[in-house]
Design a protein around this nucleic acid. Structure first.
Length: 468
RNA sequence: GGUGGCGUACCCAAGUGGCCUAAGGGGACGGUUUGCAAAACCGUUAUUCGCCGGUUCAAAUCCGGCCGCCACCUCCA
């Protein structure tokens, strides 16, 4: 399979360092706030990547980090407060409570959206000793320096600095909006450890009581669980610089080995043409989508259906379109399940050809849009085959392939929702009325059901209900 | 100022040198089916890929210029 490596800026054939076993690290959320739909797009990409690797028979060791130490923001630089601290003050909570609360909300959303559990959740606060050890190692190698209780990475000592982002020390200097910090040897030097008595979260370190720099956590945690060189590292495009650039610098300076083989970055999504941000008031949460009546599968469909490397512009229209699109696939699956129980008959579509086409799409840097197109074409062919009498063994084989595909997207797993009792009661009335050919009463029952937000389908196998 | 990316129908989106007079989904319209519907199936909906040049037997796909949009360089998925 091919993956687009941000580091080489080319499509590369991917093969894990250890045959059959992929080691992957996903940059996760900073838990000082609810994660919005844009965040979940990136997480959904990582989830899909893992599912695809597993489809291909590879074992995947997945690590997802949780940044539960805040990091300094521009507007709070003077006060020395980070995001978690600001939030803690707003809510009157401790930093731990803030992180714990939003982490729980994040986990809940992930369950709702059918994300798989990683092998390891790495919370930054649980890995401070590893970070300190890594900082020590960098100091010993002369790649970092301590000054006034702080430790900085010395970018001038790492020639590869800039290889991921395309920046160079010169261009960074030219566009510098970084305030000059007299402690630093080079303005691009970044903090590995900050000594700060006022910070809410502090740990003892050889350089003073304080807190770790942002970038060091990912290097320490990923290398602990995945080794000094591992296969895949994902994140949002905003992580390319400075975060991932700095991770590469400190990791490779410490080990002398390549850090990550393939870097994968998901592009951001916009909402109605604008970047999602609190100040624009366009932050959309998973819970809001659920409240509006979109199902988890519909949300997932929208999140996943545009290729991760493509910037996407979200709007309510996209979510509205997901229901009918998904209905075709879910209806196909339900019909196959019914036909599977009957005696053999009809002719199945060319399953081998469909499978090959689907896999070719996914192998091409996770072309989910293309793969979904194959699934829709498959549903079209399959439905036509069912109309032509496909049943029994052929239906079972067709269903098995559909299920196999869906293992990658997790869109069709949810069972049929049971309609409310009132809908079922009216449905019973409609059945009786139709039997008596009392069309007026039958129509009235249908209208009543529709008023409750449900649709009916009169099939030869009985009445069926579907959410509008 | 520097760095990276994008622009395909009403909307979303695949395709990156010839199977393209451009997948697929949504929407719209017509047909089959249905008591009427719904669902399903069949068909129609871009001779054209931001604009202008160039390379080539051949370009949405390569090159140059222009226009527009976005991201990063500061916390951000």
């Amino acid at each position: 399979m091919k993956l687009y490596n941000s580091l080489s800026r080319t499509l590369e054939d991917f093969a894990p360092l250890e045959p059959g076993h992929v080691r992957m690290y996903n940059c996760g959320p900073t838990v000082y706030n609810d994660q919005h739909i844009g965040n979940y797009r990136t997480f959904a990409f990582a989830d899909t990547l893992r599912r695809w690797l597993e489809y291909k028979g590879l074992r995947v060791t997945q690590v997802i980090n949780i940044t539960d130490v805040g990091h300094l923001t521009q507007e709070h630089l003077d006060s020395g407060e980070d995001k978690v601290m600001v939030k803690a003050r707003e809510l009157g909570w401790t930093a731990e409570q803030v992180a714990g609360h939003f982490m729980e909300r994040y986990f809940q959303d992930r369950r709702i959206l059918f994300f798989q559990e990683p092998a390891h959740w790495t919370r930054a606060t649980r890995y401070v000793p590893e970070m300190i050890a890594l900082v020590k190692r960098l100091l010993e190698k002369g790649a970092a320096y301590a000054v006034g209780g702080n430790v900085y990475f010395d970018v001038a000592r790492f020639p590869g600095y800039g290889k991921l982002s395309g920046n160079s020390l010169e261009t960074l200097k030219a566009g510098a909006r970084i305030e000059i910090n007299p402690e630093k040897r080079n303005p691009a030097d970044f903090a590995l450890w900050k000594t700060d008595a006022k910070h809410l979260m502090q740990w003892d370190a050889p350089w003073g009581r304080g807190f770790p720099g942002w970038h060091i956590e990912c290097s320490a945690m990923s290398m602990k669980h995945l080794g000094e060189t591992f296969d895949l590292h994902t994140g949002g495009e905003d992580n390319i610089f400075p975060h991932h650039e700095c991770e590469i610098a400190q990791s490779e300076a410490a080990t002398g080995k390549p850090f990550v083989k393939v870097w994968l970055h998901a592009r951001h999504l916009l909402w109605d043409g604008e970047k999602i941000s609190k100040s624009k008031g366009n932050v959309v949460l998973v819970q809001q989508l659920l409240d509006k009546g979109y199902s988890p599968a519909e949300i997932r469909y929208v999140l996943v259906s545009t290729r991760y490397r493509q910037q996407v512009n979200f709007s309510w229209d996209l979510f509205d379109g997901a229901r009918p699109a998904l209905r075709k696939l879910a209806g196909f699956k339900a019909r196959l399940a019914e036909a599977a129980a009957k005696t053999d008959g009809g002719k199945a579509p060319d399953l081998e050809a469909v499978r090959a086409e689907f896999e070719a799409r996914m192998d091409d840097d996770l072309d989910v849009a293309g793969a979904l197109g194959v699934m829709h074409g498959f549903a079209g062919q399959g439905n036509a085959a069912l109309e032509g009498g496909l049943a029994g063994k052929g239906a079972r084989e067709t269903l098995a392939l559909l299920d196999r595909f869906d293992g990658v997207f997790a869109l069709l797993g949810g069972g049929e929702e049971r309609p409310p009792d009132e809908v079922l009661r009216l449905g019973g009335e409609r059945v009786a009325a139709r039997k008596a050919k009392d069309w007026k009463a039958a129509d009235a029952a249908r209208e009543g059901i529709q008023a409750l937000g449900w649709a009916v389908e009169d099939t030869k196998d009985g009445i069926k209900y579907r959410r509008l």
